[in-house]
Amino acid sequence: MTRRGVICTLRRAVLALLLASGPAHAQANQEDCAPPHRIEWPADRPLWSLCWISPDSSSGIDGSGLELRDVFYKGQRVLRRAGLPLLNVNYDPGGCGAYRDWQSGLMDFETDGILGPPGSRYAEPTKPPRTMCDDAGQAGGNFQGVAAEKTSGQLVLTTQLQSGPYRYTQKWIFRPDGSIDARIAFTARVDPCNVKPHDHHAYWRLEFEIGDDASDYVEAASQNSSAAVSWNRIRTEASSRNDAVRGGTWRIQSASAQRGYEIVSGPDNGRADAWAAADAWVLKFHPDELDDGGARQGPGGSAVQLDRYLNGESVDGANLVLWVHATDRHDGNDRCHFVGPTLRPVGKW
């Protein structure tokens, strides 16, 4: 068995132990979160409170990149867990096939404000970190981990990942108005394959908990000719492509708390083709559905397998998970272009 195979086997075993220990054990791990993993921003009058998990410690068989836990806005929970468990690359016919990447490999980037001893995974930079998006395709830097840039206008968490020849910059951006940007950008070191036309596919897992009583529900913006937006309530688990949902916009709300979030995946995020399967999945929460089951990695890697979880369960008043897809096309270039959904608060926050 390869070294990568051994790592994946060990991760499956650890995941099985966590699941066997039940929700109380998972909650205890979250309660252990302390600074610097616990961030309150702004410092004087915090609007946001969250815990971050470094990619090399993130959940899922292949990791979830820069993962968030227990995200609160104005003292109210928004997300219990959020991450990026699935990254796929699919080459055009005659190219190099399909690949499934891992999201646990840290990659160097440049930042100041590194806190703690040598090897620390945390920094609070005084200026934006310099990643491969500032020098596409190049590797190198003085830091591996998570940089939390705290300005008066936003909190930006940045990390850089590697998977084989690929280099990914991942960001979470939080603003005082309650909006969140989930972003990733793609490039690679020079390689005979990656100069051929291909598509990168990213799938975020957003585990919402707006109300405290499992009363959340989901709506999709209706594709009609009216200027006013109307909403279709989703009653059972479903998947959809963005061309069937107006503006790629979904809304998750709590019936009891009268608040929620819109999740917007605009035109810049592309649209799912047959290989990418869908642009969104609405699922009832299950603790063992942190990824899509660990399909094949490396050359010949399989497409997303999230449809296996569509079994007709009710999502009309439940603990909900929304998976959101975005894609970026590379056609003989090394552009580093950020894609991903934006989350916006609605209702009484």
Rank of each mutant, 00 (worst) to 15 (best):
W250V: 01
A257L: 10
A276Y: 06
R233Q: 14
D279G: 15
W275M: 00
S215I: 04
P192N: 06
N242G: 14
H201V: 04
A221V: 12
S254R: 11
S239E: 11
A214S: 13
S222W: 05
V264W: 03
R246L: 12
L283K: 03
S215Y: 07
N269R: 09
S254Q: 09
G247T: 10
R259P: 00
D216V: 03
S302R: 02
G270I: 06
E219H: 13
H198F: 07
L290A: 03
V282T: 09
A202R: 02
G266T: 13
S254G: 13
R259W: 11
Q253L: 14
I210M: 13
I252L: 15
R251K: 15
G293Y: 11
G266P: 04
S240C: 03
R251F: 04
K284G: 14
H198C: 07
Q258V: 00
A238D: 09
R259I: 08
F208M: 10
S265D: 00
S240E: 04
N269T: 13
R189A: 11
N224P: 02
G270V: 01
S302M: 04
W204H: 05
S302I: 04
H198R: 02
G260L: 02
P267H: 06
N194F: 15
A220E: 02
D212I: 04
Q223T: 14
